[in-house]
Amino acid sequence: MHQVLQTDGTLRAAAPLDVSTTRQLYAAMVAARTYDHKGTTLQKQGRLATYASFLGQEACQIGATGPLRPDDWLVATYRDAGAMWAQGYPWVNLFLGRTGDERGGAAPPDVNVLPPSITVGAHMIHAVGLAWAEQYRGTDRVALTMFGDGATSEGDFHEAMNFAGVFGVPVIFLCQNNHYAISTPRHRQTAAETLAAKADGYGMPGRQVDGNDLFAVYDAVAAAVADARAGGGPTFIEAVTYRLSPHTTADDPGRYRPAAEEEEWRARDPLDRVRRYLEANGEWSPAWQDELEQAAAADVDAAITAAEQLEPLGAAAVFDAVFAEPTPQLLRQRNRAATDE
């Protein structure tokens, strides 16, 4: 398993990033965690429908998107808000989606991030299609798709990997193996020794990296992106990490995993590791940490306020976003709905 930054913050191999970029990505990890805490809190207050936390997976979220260009595609899941935000998807959109408002799915015009996939595993083939279109047009854009260990059991995972391999499209498959699909452990998803080994069957490189190591994730994704841009085709990366939170706010991990295991992984916290590294290099201070946390909290609070202040969609808007122009069916139903109300 590829590792660069060890738990104690010391390097096992050369850092792939300079200190200034590392500070930026650390700041992004802090922001992501701030949003994540807010999401869990707001759900408990009844202000969000459900919330799927990525606590403990911040190195994957920020390390994966770090090597992307702003015009690259990202196709991710309901647990990838940190990555989506890092790629330009605003916090307000993420909160809107969680409050139960379709406008959360409207990424800004210059942000090539699809709304999060809620069904498990069907979205990786979308990234293949997007990357294929870029390849057809002769751009050097790539598509990154993120998913969990559970998604590798879906049939569409196979079809996506297979299409990508056969047509050599510029797509990067990043599997966050966080050990549990709700309650189902990784060994119930596959008898394969690693998920990375699956790449062999599709004729593409597969790498297993420490998913709690910002540098290892960044390193692996950067190499895959460079390869894809240069026409080298797809790569599969298994980032081994752990969801420190429940699956969603409706879940109780006590039913399926020991508390000691959670503690073990808490000690491998991806933020602590980068903080120790920066501190050892004289690039971290408690004052800077406070500054980061306060700035992130202000951003996140402004986003939730903006989301909550938006008037809910009117009845007409519900009918008008099905097609470019409503069909006669929808026009009749829209009138009926207006009459019934």
Partner: peptide, 9 residues
């Protein structure tokens, strides 16, 4: 699914 991605692009 691939056609979907192509169309979105």
């Amino acid at each position: 699914g691939a056609a979907f991605g192509m169309a979105v692009a």
